[in-house]
């Protein structure tokens, strides 16, 4: 086992075969950021689907918070207004959840979003075959490539999901104000709204990472020879 680490010529600059190849985290972050910046428009489109899906999720979630806030006042007039607006409220209920139909629509929209991300990232991987191959020829390990793609997706995910969650919440509040007046916003529990926004954003980040995982593994496992053989 040890003899293959020894060199025939001890005078050489580097001795034997070692295994230390590194890519510092800061550098990976820098490379991923550049990749996004260069393909800004494309990243924007990928991120856009995430923004839409997450803002829908956040919208629904914050709307429920608003309704609960209004119910919590115990004012019968507000309860009447809610029923009039189409909410199914049991006579003695003090809060409402999302309806099954609403949940299905949200799940579907998130699924569509993941499919979109997988598609976009697969394209990004195909487009960068040669670049990945080159990096591997320069000594990059599988996990460097994986990390670059995951970081890129995480950055897109954070921006997209963050923006989506805030946009959804704001629209939901505006919507409630237009329907019920300022009383809707006045009674809402802001802690609940913040929780909804954070949960939506977190879900969006997870979706973004889930969507990139398969394409990134595909890229990382690629053999440099195959990558170089592809004509561009």
């Amino acid at each position: 086992m040890t003899d293959r680490y020894l060199l025939a010529d001890p005078a050489k600059r580097t001795s034997g075969v070692n295994r230390q190849v590194v890519l510092p985290f800061k550098k990976s972050l820098e490379i991923s950021f550049k990749q996004i910046r260069v393909r800004f428009f494309r990243s924007l489109i990928t991120t856009m689907s995430l923004v839409l899906a997450v803002s829908f999720l956040s919208f629904a979630s914050v709307s429920t918070d608003v309704v609960n806030g209004m119910l919590a006042t115990g004012d019968p007039a507000l309860r009447q207004a809610l029923i009039h607006a189409g909410y199914d409220i049991e006579p003695d209920a003090t809060n409402v959840g999302s309806s099954p139909k609403q949940r299905w629509i949200i799940i579907l929209s998130l699924l569509v979003c993941v499919v979109g991300i997988v598609n976009a990232q697969l394209m990004a991987v195909t487009e960068r075959f040669r670049e990945i191959g080159t990096m591997k020829c320069l000594g990059a390990l599988d996990r460097f490539v994986l990390r670059l793609f995951l970081l890129e997706a995480a950055m897109q995910g954070l921006t997209g999901a963050g923006a989506g969650a805030v946009i959804g919440a704001v629209f939901s509040l505006i919507n409630a104000t237009l329907i019920f007046g300022t009383v809707a916003v006045g009674n809402v529990s802001w802690a609940q709204v913040a929780l909804s926004v954070i949960l939506s954003a977190g879900a969006g980040c997870l979706l973004s990472l889930a969507g990139v995982f398969y394409p990134a593994v595909l890229a990382a496992r690629m053999q440099p020879v195959e990558a170089m053989r592809i004509e561009q």
């Binding site: 580097t14 075969v17 070692n18 295994r19 230390q20 190849v21 490379i31 550049k34 990749q35 910046r37 260069v38 040669r130 670049e131 191959g133 080159t134 990096m135 591997k136 020829c137 320069l138 000594g139 990059a140 390990l141 599988d142 440099p224 170089m228 561009q232």
Partner: peptide, 24 residues
């Protein structure tokens, strides 16, 4: 895989027909 990566990194320099610089 680790040793191969090290070998490619330290022992061998590659030059390609299509240059293959990293565009970004």
């Amino acid at each position: 895989a680790y040793e191969l990566a090290w070998l490619r990194c330290r022992k061998i320099g590659y030059i390609f027909q299509t240059f293959n610089l990293i565009q970004v």
